[in-house]
Write a protein that binds this DNA or RNA. Structure first.
Lengths: 135, 135
DNA sequence: CTAGTTGCAAAGAGTTTGCATGGCG
DNA sequence: CGCCATGCAAACTCTTTGCAACTAG
C-alpha cells in the first residue's frame, strides 16, 4: 500500500459513505458500480484491513468475508464491537462495564482478552423491536 | 441424520476424546486415521453442528472451518466461550461478571447478546506465560 | 525512470452436490 | 426391503497468484 491510486481511493470512499454497512467483495463491486477488477479489490481490502481502515469479518453462514469501513483514527483497541446478526450493523461501544469484565477475565480467569479480534454478536434495539430476533 | 452409522460414531468418538481441540476436516481425517470420505465428514459435521454436538468456527486466518466437540447436555447458551488465538483451545466459562456485562449491555445499550454465537478471543494463561501473546 | 499497482486468467483451497453403491433399521 | 448414508469425482465459491501492461511518485 505504498501508492495512492484511483481504484483504492474510490473503494475506500464508497465504503466510507456507508460506515454502518458491510460488504462482500462481490457486493462492493456490484453496488458501487466501480470498474475495478476483483483481484484489485481483494488486494486493496487486505491492505486497508492491515492498516486498520476497514474491518474484516468472516460471516457465520459460510459465505465470503465481509468488510466494513472503520475510521482509522478511532482507536478500536479501546472499545468493543457489537454486531447485529439481523441487520449486520456494527456498533463501536465504549463501556466501562465491558472494560471491567475484560479486567476480571484477565485477573481471575487468566485470559487476556483481545478487543480488536473480539466481536460480540446479538441483536440491536431496532431489530429486537422489529421482531427480527429469533428468540 | 436419521441413521447412526459406523462413520458418524467414529468421528464423534474421536472428537469427544479431545474436547479441548478443534479440527479442520483435513486434520480430523489425517489425525484420526479413519478411512472416511471427505464429503462424509462434511455431511456428518454439518449434522452434528445442527444438533449442537459440535461447534463450528471460522478461523480468522482464512483457513478452513474448525469443528470442536461440545457435549450436547452442557448448555452453551448459559456461558461464554473464550478462544485462545495462540493454541486454539476453547474454554467454556461460567462467569457472573460476564453475565452482568451481558445484562448491562442489554439494559443500557439496547443490545441483546447472543452467547451461542459470541466468542471472546484472546490469549490463555499458558500462552501468555510462554510469551505466545504478541503484546 | 522505477517500483508499486492493475486486470485478466489460471491456479488453489475449502465445501457442496450428483449419482451409483452399500448399510441401517 | 426401503430409505438414508457413503464415496468418488465433478462442480462451485471465494481468494490468491503469475504476468504483462500501466501509472504514481
Amino acid at each position: 500500500m505504498k501508492y495512492s491510486t484511483k481504484q483504492k481511493r474510490a473503494i475506500l470512499e464508497y465504503m466510507k459513505a456507508y460506515p454502518d454497512r458491510c460488504f462482500t467483495v462481490r457486493e462492493l463491486i456490484a453496488e458501487s458500480g466501480l470498474d475495478v477488477g476483483e483481484a484489485t479489490v481483494y488486494r486493496a481490502l487486505s491492505g486497508f484491513a492491515a492498516d486498520g481502515e476497514v474491518k474484516r469479518y468472516v460471516s457465520g453462514d459460510g459465505g465470503g468475508a465481509l468488510y466494513q469501513y472503520a475510521s482509522a483514527d478511532e482507536s478500536c483497541e479501546s472499545h468493543f464491537h457489537l454486531k447485529c446478526l439481523s441487520c449486520g450493523r456494527l456498533f463501536h461501544t465504549e463501556c466501562h462495564v465491558i472494560d471491567e469484565m475484560t479486567k476480571h477475565v484477565e485477573e481471575e480467569h487468566g485470559f487476556r482478552v483481545d478487543n480488536v479480534h473480539t466481536t460480540i454478536y446479538g441483536y440491536c434495539r431496532d431489530c429486537v423491536e422489529k421482531g427480527a430476533c429469533k428468540k
